[in-house]
Simulated assay, not measured.
Amino acid sequence: MNKEQNTNQEKRHYFYVLECADRSFYAGYTTEPERREKEHNTGIGCKYTKSRRPVRMIHREGFATRSEATKAEAAFKKLTRKEKEKRVGRDGDTEEL
């Protein structure tokens, strides 16, 4: 296997944002965004989203390492609500997923 093939098979790490039924945001980390969204919607995602279903993934960013993705998640969680809305494109400037 050459280096290019090996790179293509490596796992991607994602920082993602869900919008909950109560319009709150939930930020997390995963290697499989589609599976993770389904888990949140079936009640096995986490305690926070369990009572706020349905949830919808409105933002995700891919990174080469887990460290980069979790740093993006931590930085997002420190933002104000207005800054979070702008970051995920809820300020009217960009399209959502």
Rank of each mutant, 00 (worst) to 15 (best):
Y29A: 05
S67Q: 13
R36P: 02
H59T: 02
R36H: 04
R56S: 13
G43A: 01
T49Y: 01
T49P: 04
H40P: 02
A64S: 08
I44F: 08
G43D: 01
N41F: 09
T65N: 10
M57F: 00
R36W: 04
Y48W: 10
E39F: 09
F63Y: 14
T30S: 05
I58T: 04
H40F: 08
H59F: 08
T65L: 12
C46I: 09
S67W: 14
C46P: 02
P33I: 08
M57L: 03
G43I: 02
T42Q: 14
R35C: 07
A64W: 14
G43W: 11
G62F: 10
Y29T: 07
E61Q: 07
E39L: 08
R60P: 00
I58V: 09
E37L: 09
T49Q: 03
E39K: 10
G28H: 02
E34P: 03
R52I: 15
T65M: 15
R52Y: 08
V55Y: 02
T42N: 08
K47H: 10
E32Y: 15
A64G: 07
T31M: 11
I58A: 05
S67I: 15
Y48A: 02
N41D: 09
G28A: 12
T30R: 10
K50R: 13
I44T: 09
R56L: 15
T30E: 10
P54V: 03
V55L: 04
E37Y: 00
T42G: 11
T49F: 02
R60L: 03
K47T: 11
H40N: 07
I58Y: 02
R53M: 06
V55A: 06
K38S: 11
Y48T: 04
C46R: 04
K47N: 06
R66H: 03
K38M: 14
T49C: 06
R35H: 09
T31P: 03
F63V: 04
A64Y: 06
F63N: 04
E39Q: 15
S51L: 13
A64E: 07
A64H: 12
R52F: 05
G43E: 01
A64P: 04
R36M: 05
T31D: 04
P54D: 03
Y48V: 03
P54G: 00
E61R: 03
E32G: 09
R53S: 07
Y48C: 00
G28T: 15
R60F: 03
K50M: 10
R36V: 08
R36K: 07
K50G: 06
E39A: 12
E61D: 05
R66K: 14
Y48P: 00
H40G: 06
R56G: 07
E34N: 12
A64F: 11
R52L: 09
R56P: 04
M57C: 02
I58G: 01
T31S: 10
G43F: 02
R53W: 01
Y48N: 00
K38Y: 08
S51Q: 08
T31E: 12
Y29G: 06
R53C: 01
T31Y: 06
T65F: 09
T49E: 01
S51N: 12
Y48Q: 03
E32K: 15
Y48K: 09
G62E: 09
R36T: 08
T42I: 15
G28W: 11
G62D: 09
V55W: 01
Y29S: 05
T49S: 03
E37F: 00
Y29M: 04
T30W: 05
T65D: 10
K38E: 14
I44V: 13
